[in-house]
Design a protein around this nucleic acid. Sequence first.
RNA 1: CGGGAUGUAGCGCAGCUGGUAGCGCACUUCGCUUGGGACGAAGGGGUCGCACGUUCGAACCGUGUCAUCCCGACCA
Length: 579
Amino acid sequence: MKMSKLFVQTLREFPADADVISHKLLARAGFIRKLTSGCYNYLPLMWRVLKKIENIVREEMDSAGAQELLTPFVQPKELWEESGRWEVYGKELMRLSDRHNREMCLGPTAEEVITAVARDGLKSYKQLPCNLYQIQEKFRDEVRPRYGLLRGREFIMKDAYSFDLDQEGLDKEYKNMANAYTRIFERCGLETKMVQSDSGAIGGSVSHEFMVITTTDAGENDVFYCDDCNYSANSNHAISNLPQAETDGSKFGFTEPKVIDTPNTRTIEELCEFLKIPSTIILKSLVYIVDKKHVIALIRADKQVEETKLMNAVGGIDIRIASAAEIEELMQNHGFNGIAGFIGPKGMDDVTIVADNTVKDLKNFVVGINETDKHLVGANFGKDIPEIKQYADLRLVEAGEFCPECGKPLKVTRGIEVGNIFQLGTKYSKPMNAVYLDKNGKAQPYVMGCYGIGISRTAAAAVERWHDDNGIAWPVQIAPYHVTIVPLNNNDELQMKVAKECYAKLLSAGIEAVLDDRDERPGVKFKDADLIGFPYRITVGKTIVDGNVELKTRKTNEVETVTPEKAVELVINRIKEAI
RNA sequence: CGGGAUGUAGCGCAGCUGGUAGCGCACUUCGCUUGGGACGAAGGGGUCGCACGUUCGAACCGUGUCAUCCCGACCA
């Protein structure tokens, strides 16, 4: 490809609406262009990158025994009613009607469609196991699309679905996919961590996410991990052992229940300050709205509630913290007139109350009793405060707490989720009556797994990982082109001749090369080459009179002064080796 | 959903005490230049997001609407 004909417009400045580096660089280097919120044009350079990632995924999925197919992007309501998700999925599911007023949706994922495909085709145990996958546009109407390709509304995803006879088969395929994923990301030039995760709206029990570890905002997930063993988990799923803490209020003189005045103590901090006590003897009460109903979460006051855990504990699908007005309304409905900040479980008999496991150890604790500027001290469950009916792990893990597997301190980092694997079990096959006949002629639901990779997100994650002040530094395997040849002065016949020869040799060796034949000054060509991120650059400049060109490696900035023949040979060898 | 802000040329921005739109980059042509986003000259490109209103006159004032971005969603 000649640079003069390559469809790319690099910008001198970063676009104003981007705030993470991958978004900024991809837009500025001419890879993407926003069409509307969360939807991007993949321009030719971007499309080449995406196709390369897709092909790596294809090769690894195929060699892992999966088969590629393609299902429609628009899906009928009826299938989603079969699985029960039409009601449950929420606003992220983009619903629309056709001209006959038939309700449809844009596919955010394809469990329903693929399960239906399998149901029609996989009738016998002899056909199992089977793993079907596709690489396709997906649409999720995100509350707040942001970070460019990292959280778009329309994006490219590889989604695979496995169908097994039983759990044993699923376990085997799950491991098979985990291995394939590790290879896929390695081949994309990305180091990933496989972490335990919540299974979310897709459902199921066991699930893991593949995270690209970052230190920037672009990593939207907190990952807790242990250096001493291989434990690692998303914050929505992580568990930990806590250090010893004082949880008995009697050590602070609260030996019997007593209501005391605690003026202006709306927050735990203020309360601790006022009573001169640690927060570990306070019972904190938080009000959430889960699926439009009030839920009270109780937890030791020095700890925080992880919303996903709470949501799972009450079996909900949507959760948010209640507003001060909603809290006060809840209190009024139960005959109290306190303000938010003094709420407690007392008298809330008909409200769903879930207590974190840390609450079990509390004795003679301090708790709000729904009265402004008052707290109950020396309280205990059963006597002063109603007995807890439901305990669960609701606690958000914090760095420094101890690894649940080996007891060493946990660390935290940020990660970009580029892939995930779920064990679905019979969550979809049962309600959709997707069954095979076993050896005894008896109908059995498939035991399913599903496995996703965000193709476009993986590309963005690669930019997050591989860039510097000058632009992108693509891993060779997924770079849009392998090498650019830059003659510095188009009027210099020797430079142009050598550049064209290098270009021709590289092309005939199957290397993806771009000849920068534009009549631009050297600075412009260098800036663009760095910005776009060609892994290698062959510069043909003044040194050609001595018979030399320069070979520059983008990632390391290493420059080798060699003959043109040698430069071409080096590039060919290194590319072949890397791919 | 709540709050804040912004919509003027492909990109980044100015103009907004109302009088018919400008700068830098990009683009076209010519000259000059050629090792890290040169310079000069001449050009092309915009119903100022949209609608309604006020006015002799609206990019500018008012109302509404749409779009985009950011922050937050109360840890009691």
